[in-house]
Amino acid sequence: MAKAQGLTWTIDDADHMTQAEIYGEVLTNLGLEDERIVALTADLAGSTKIGKFQKKIPERFFNLGIAEANMIAIASGMAATGLIPVVSTFAVFASLRAAEFVRTDICYQKRNVKIIATHSGTSFGQSGTTHHCTEDLAVMRALSGITVIAPADSFETARAVKAGIEHDGPVYIRIGRGFEPPLHESLDFDYQIGKALRMRDGTDITVIACGVPVLHAVEAADRAKEQGVSVRVLDMHTLKPLDEEAVLEAVMDTRRIITVEDHNVIGGLGSAVSDVIAKSGKGCAVRKLGFQDEFSIVGYPEDLLHRYGLDADGIMGAISDVLKQDFETDEDWEDEI
């Protein structure tokens, strides 16, 4: 049973909590320590778990009803008075319904608002496509001045929420619906916004993932190892600012990269990583796993990850494909960065 350790608080049993529960808990504890923190939601206090904050600190909690754009602008106004607003709703509404409000009221005006977007990707798969969100990373990455984070499990979520609140500036944290299996065993790991975590070391190929697919990438790496293939796995929990150094190292060391995300392959992690590879000027085989510019079908999240090749099986398949892929190497194959 892992404990999540804050400055003055602990959460028991962190490994049995979903991403959303953990974030609700961490946020509440931070709120008890810092009176500037206020929590806002749009009729989703229960579903997003920001309701935990409401129970403990009702005077600093605001439910705006089902009015997401309004909520974002109100949060910006509150931030203008020195408060630290944390807003929470489903990813599709935070990033798309309210997109222009996030851009103009939070990013453009540099307001210290934290957005915690739940039910992202296809984590609410049965709900249907109106509630999937495979575009938010692309939209948020394109907004200037916002930090974009996609934690892989509840432990990372705890770290991200704390680090996000300590960071001065807009932050978007994308989490699932809940029920995500843990990647880490405890909160005891080096966590820094903008710094990828190397989950497995390897020299033949690198898998760079964010969110729930990181766990699947690790499983694929372990299976590949048994077949004599050495796979590096990077948990790229921060999409912006991206850990370019880690990507460049992967280019130089393995020359083959696969990206995996519960997101459209346009504009998300794969695109961010590809930008760095292009800039490097080095030959590198790249495969972007994600939704190939299509809306997902309806289904259970784990079935969808499998169907769209984002689980360990899919990643294994991509590894063997990309290992076979030919490309022109350059003379500096052995370059150091």
Binding site: S127, T129, H131
Partner: peptide, 13 residues
């Protein structure tokens, strides 16, 4: 209804 591959999500398409 709602199962993987079904035409029906909770919100109809």
């Amino acid at each position: 209804f709602n199962k993987t591959g079904s035409p029906f999500g909770m919100h109809l398409d």
